[in-house]
Amino acid sequence: MLIDLRQIHKTYNNGQPLHVLKGIDLGIDEGEFVSIMGASGSGKSTLLNILGILDNYDEGEYWLDGNLIKDLSEKEAAHYRNRLIGFVFQSFNLINFKTAVENVELPLYYQGVSRKKRNELAMSYLEHFGLADWATHYPNELSGGQKQRVAIARALITRPRILLADEPTGALDSKTSVEVMNLLTELNRTEKVTIIVVTHESGVANCTDKIIHIKDGIIGETTLNEQHQSSIFGTETIMK
């Protein structure tokens, strides 16, 4: 099992203690395409942060690819993030003063890859996503869909085992949302990347193979969704 969570608890102590995760048990295999659904405040973003080693947890165990992820130093955490995990954010989180290609190659910079090699690799990813013409443009010159594709290219350039997407379509219109979800599906099918999408849109969740519902800090039901028929809003579109 690639990801194995055992009884994860997390409490925020900002003034009033807030018990966000109340014992999460979750297993995700290599190559799965999973969505985590829940209302706002249900703890789904916290769960994603823990999965991405962006945040630590109080109790339980988190095994990632056979390694116990607990009380890591910042340096080790950075190493795992850099090698194993790619992130896609709702607001793209591209660096504004860097061009598309520079944004894509940034993770390789922190791996110590040479500039030339970085550039070649980044260009090939952008080409693959149909963005070769936009390589030297700055993020504010790109459309939302283009930005998200750049962000996905940046997440993938280190060849991570896991792609964590936090509301990847949150800032996109329905047409581009479909495009982005199709892109993620294709990545999962062809590259066998394990993809975990956090969303509160059922249409987005419907694109994935497995839907994990989270409510008030515990896992509710898990729906297998091989036929992609679970969206009550229809199967052909992503409802906005």
Binding site: E74, A78, R81, R83, F87, L94, P107, Y110
Partner: peptide, 12 residues
């Protein structure tokens, strides 16, 4: 934060 998320160490 973005830099940290994609693999920069605090020392970087």
């Amino acid at each position: 934060g973005i830099r940290r998320a994609i693999g920069a160490t605090p020392r970087d």
